[in-house]
């Protein structure tokens, strides 16, 4: 986006960045949640203290 752009136009780059960032964050969260669910299924708890005792 050059310097000549007039005010009604918004800079598309930050929007692209934010969108990509959101995609990344969503996939990270999805992975995290799936891991949490699997841990819950296997250990019956997601309490850090209890998990540590299980080791």
């Amino acid at each position: 986006m050059g310097a000549g752009a007039r005010p009604p136009y918004t800079n598309p780059i930050p929007q692209g960045l934010i969108l990509t960032g959101i995609v990344v964050a969503v996939s990270t969260t999805a992975l995290a949640l799936s891991l949490i669910i699997r841990i819950w299924k296997q250990c019956g708890t997601i309490e850090a203290d209890e998990l540590r005792e299980m080791d």
């Binding site: 990270t28 992975l31 995290a32 891991l35 841990i39 296997q42 998990l51 080791d55």
Partner: peptide, 15 residues
């Protein structure tokens, strides 16, 4: 079980 917990720990720090 341990693998998932390690992965989760890694994920939190990595995120």
């Amino acid at each position: 079980r341990t693998a998932e917990m390690a992965g989760f720990k890694y994920l939190i720090m990595g995120a």
